[in-house]
């Protein structure tokens, strides 16, 4: 267990706790305006979404643009569990994530043989099919949507976000994550080095779908209402843009992208008619002048601390 408590992890943990405490304090003492709280919780949700999509698109190199579909599955399933079946919140979130992961498995197995643009279009088609299915389900409200109580607090949203990011980061930083990256780098070579590429593509896709479903569940149990229209391919694009904005393949980049994009959207909320026009121009300009995103594939890390650890270890030897 000594490996858990290196200097880097301890500093990160302190930072996370501090961030949580400051926001929680502002909320408890009623200093935080509701719009800010909404934005912060949305940031948590979008961080889970962008990090999980990054696992599929950036780490494994499989171009998926149907993430809103998995989000929808998680949202509706968790809503069914918490409202229709009167289940507890955590069970609802978990059920949503698991069903979404199953959907990921079912969609991923046949479609992940496809490459590049073809896979992108197939996943986009899947996302739209999911939306239309919920549109046609009358017992969850159809087009009018499904209302549910708002049970998610800042504590829940933040905690679930932190746990999701840590789990995905642990996966990426393991030999399994390296297997996924090797597929992105050169699929034929990966297969020749003994990597079961189908297995790892489906695994990354399923894990990505799991966390997208979780984020969908958090979204549903916070926003009072969910409608099929919310989960259209525009939402998938939003998530994709966050990942690319931050830097495909960089977990911290995905987080930065989610924060920046959500903040921009929030800032432009006052001029809704201009919001998407500005976003669009921003996107095109970004792609032309810095297509690698804010972070590229680099990680924003505390590596200067780790180096000290290494030095300490070296001097002990």
């Amino acid at each position: 267990m000594r490996n858990w408590f290196n200097r880097k992890n301890i500093v990160s943990l302190l930072g996370i706790v501090l961030l949580y405490a400051v926001v929680q304090g502002l909320i408890v003492f009623d200093i935080m305006p509701p719009f800010y709280k909404l934005t912060l919780i949305l940031i948590c949700i979008y961080i889970i979404l962008s990090t999980s999509l990054n696992l599929i698109n950036g780490i494994t190199g499989q171009f998926s643009i149907g993430h809103a579909g998995f989000m929808a599955v998680g949202a509706y399933v968790s809503a069914m569990v918490t409202v229709i079946m009167h289940g507890p919140l955590l069970l609802g979130l978990f059920a949503g994530a698991v069903v979404s992961a199953l959907a990921g498995l079912i969609v991923g197995l046949p479609t992940l043989r496809l490459k590049g643009d073809y896979l992108a279009i197939a996943t986009l088609g899947f996302g739209e099919i999911v939306r239309i299915v919920f549109l046609n389900m009358d017992f969850v409200g159809g087009a009018a949507g499904f209302t549910l109580p708002s049970k998610i607090t800042w504590t829940w949203a933040f905690l679930l976000m932190v746990v999701s990011v840590i789990l995905i980061k642990n996966f990426v930083g393991s030999t399994h994550g390296r297997a996924c990256i090797s597929i992105r780098e050169n699929e034929i070579a990966a297969e020749s080095m003994g990597i079961n590429t189908t297995k790892y593509k489906v695994m990354a896709f399923t894990i990505g779908a799991f966390f997208a479903g979780l984020a969908g569940g958090i979204y549903a149990n916070y926003m009072y209402i969910i409608q099929p229209g919310t989960f259209s391919f525009l939402k998938s694009f939003d998530i994709l843009v966050m990942v690319v904005l931050g830097g495909l393949g960089s977990i911290s980049g995905g987080i930065v992208g989610a924060i920046v994009y959500t903040l921009i959207s929030a800032l432009l909320a006052g001029i809704p008619e201009w919001r998407l026009v500005i976003t669009a121009v921003f996107l095109v300009v970004m792609m032309i002048f810095r297509p690698t995103g804010i972070m590229g594939t680099k990680e924003f890390g505390l590596s200067f601390l780790r180096k000290k650890d290494d030095k300490n270890a070296a001097s002990k030897n």
Partner: peptide, 27 residues
């Protein structure tokens, strides 16, 4: 400008142009 860029960059640009036409058109 993106002819030699990655496919994903080109695709995102196309999405950007699409949003621009839709919502610019709406303006």
């Amino acid at each position: 400008p993106l002819r030699n860029a990655s496919r994903i960059a080109a695709l995102i640009t196309a999405i950007g142009v699409s949003l621009f036409l839709e919502y610019g058109g709406m303006l």
